[in-house]
């Protein structure tokens, strides 16, 4: 169905005519580096936050690429990378069963206590 769509990848645009689509489809895993998810800690004491993803041949390159792509504007002091395929996600179709039962259980929030005046920053 999508056979008429030519897929070009960054830096891989043919000089003249032709289409890279067949080639790219058949050798996707061979010609593309694996995808990595990048997590950056913005400053001491805060946790690592997901900032995006990138391609790299291995973990060392992934960290260097993350440094060059995601910390150019002083965003971070620490980088984590993990192969995207190693991340397992919950299924959005199951969100009703997974999350809605919690909706009517407000008593799980610690909001029914009187906080003494001497406690601040709560």
């Amino acid at each position: 169905m999508l056979n008429h769509v030519n897929i070009f990848y960054y830096g891989d645009i043919p000089d003249a005519g032709g289409s890279a689509s067949e080639n790219n489809k058949n050798n996707f895993a061979e010609v593309n580096w694996p995808l990595w998810e990048v997590f950056i800690r913005s400053k001491q004491g805060l946790d690592h936050k997901h900032v995006g993803s990138l391609h790299a041949a291995d973990a060392a390159m992934a960290i260097e690429n993350a440094r060059d792509v995601y910390t150019r504007r002083m965003e971070g002091v620490s980088i984590w990378v993990v192969r995207s395929e190693d991340i397992h996600a919950s299924n959005p179709d199951e969100s009703g069963m997974l999350y809605e039962p919690a909706n009517d259980k407000v008593y799980r929030h610690p909001t029914f206590y009187n906080i003494p005046d001497s406690i601040t920053h709560m």
């Binding site: 960054y10 830096g11 580096w33 990138l54 391609h55 790299a56 260097e64 690429n65 060059d68 792509v69 150019r72």
Partner: peptide, 14 residues
């Protein structure tokens, strides 16, 4: 704008 992949294009520009 001509780097082999986007990540390295940015690295060299840096």
């Amino acid at each position: 704008g001509h780097g082999p992949v986007l990540e390295q294009d940015i690295a060299l520009t840096n």
